[in-house]
């Protein structure tokens, strides 16, 4: 029942059932709520310091958000299937270091090739995660907690104590990290294009909708003939590949890459996804919500220094946001279920 309602909902056809319209309203309300919080935060920060809304400041926020956005998009797909990928920070580090190293050794490599290499490295890591989860039947939390260590260990092996500096990389690649079209940075454009593609995939394609079904009820999905293994593998490969692409963007933007790139990033990504309204037990949520969550977190971390708030608060705020968001979601869900039951009894 919920599967059907959600599937219909994700098709955008809010025409038939009452459950669908209600869910729609709730999801919109949630996105709206995030937007309001975001707007309020920007307004307050800008009131304290008008430069927060200057062109260069907005550009900085967009640049910073682009990487979080990319990883949150991949994470959303995995979380929708009732999984989680805690290894994204390590995957990003591995891809960032490898592509930076590749570029420093072969300055002739073009940017698209570098991006493909990053995507490939990430996809391989994702495939490993997916295989351990699906074939090994290891719970995603445990599997990716393990690969968080393993992949980071591999980065340490590859990088040793070396650091690749901006001066080692071709200027064209670094320019790409800060260049813009019509004032909009390239990096955020890439992230937005990826976001749009994944959003379309999730809502218009069978494989995408299967992700929701898998997360809503694995048993029902299996009975309905959904190839759970292939879908799960797809989700983890996608998540890994996007983390890999994020690594390339990281290298381009920051110019300095060592073994610690992306360290402890997984927390921020999980936070963005959860705050964006994606249910941690799968089956519900959207990449757009996750994108809003990513923006909110980026704006917070950029606003704190401007507001002169002790930056020690940042982590505490991230934690409080995670707990707060899932608590609010739960309470809203309970309300919805209750009103659904009432409506149902009226109709019936």
């Amino acid at each position: 029942m919920t599967v059907l309602a959600r599937e219909r909902d994700s098709e955008g056809g809010a025409t038939s059932s009452t459950g669908s319209t209600l869910l729609d309203t709730v999801l919109r309300f949630r996105a709206l709520g995030l937007l309001v919080v975001l707007a309020a935060l920007v307004a307050v920060t800008a009131a304290v310091n008008p430069r927060f809304l200057s062109g260069s400041s907005i550009r900085d926020i967009l640049l910073a958000a682009s990487i979080t956005l990319l990883l949150a998009t991949g994470m959303t797909v995995v979380v929708l299937t009732r999984g989680i990928d805690l290894s994204v920070g390590s995957v990003l580090g591995l891809s960032a270091f490898c592509t930076a190293w590749l570029l420093s050794e072969n300055p002739g490599v073009s940017i698209p090739v570098a991006m493909l290499v990053g995507l490939g490295i990430g996809a391989v890591c994702g495939l490993f995660n997916g295989s351990v989860v699906h074939f090994g039947r290891v719970p995603p939390l445990v599997a990716t907690l393990g690969t968080l260590y393993v992949f980071r260990g591999v980065v340490y092996f590859v990088a040793g104590g070396s650091r690749i500096n901006a001066s080692d990389m071709p200027a064209g690649f670094l320019d790409f990290g800060s260049a813009r079209v019509l004032g909009v940075p390239y990096l955020i454009l890439i992230s937005l294009v990826v976001l749009a593609l994944v959003a379309v995939f999730l809502s218009r394609y069978r494989a995408g909708r299967d992700m929701y079904a898998l997360g809503s009820s694995p048993e029902a999905a299996e009975l309905a003939g959904i190839p759970a293994g292939r879908r799960k593998l797809t989700a983890y490969v996608l998540c890994g590949a996007l983390a890999g692409l994020g690594g390339v963007l990281y290298a381009a933007r920051y110019g300095t890459v060592d073994a610690s790139a992306g360290y402890a990033m997984e927390l921020d990504i999980v936070a963005a996804v959860v705050v964006g309204g994606v249910a941690i037990f799968g089956g519900s949520g959207s990449v757009l919500g996750a994108a809003l969550g990513a923006f909110l977190l980026t704006v917070i971390s950029n606003a704190l220094p401007v507001l002169n708030i002790d930056q020690f608060w940042q982590r505490a705020i991230v934690g409080a946001l995670i707990v707060g968001a899932i608590a609010v979601d739960r309470l809203v869900a309970l309300r919805v279920a209750e009103s659904l039951r009432k409506k149902g009894s009226h109709v019936g």
């Binding site: 310091n49 430069r51 927060f52 200057s54 400041s57 900085d60 910073a64 990281y250 920051y254 300095t256 890459v257 060592d258 610690s260 790139a261 360290y263 971390s301 950029n302 704190l304 220094p305 401007v306 507001l307 002169n308 930056q311």
Partner: peptide, 25 residues
């Protein structure tokens, strides 16, 4: 004007620089 902490992390230091410039035009 103040002390910011980049935690000896490239990314964080980058963002804190940005924050310093915004907080102190």
């Amino acid at each position: 004007a103040g002390v910011a902490y980049g935690d000896d992390e490239d990314e964080k230091s980058f963002q804190e620089t940005q924050g310093l410039l915004q907080a102190n035009p």
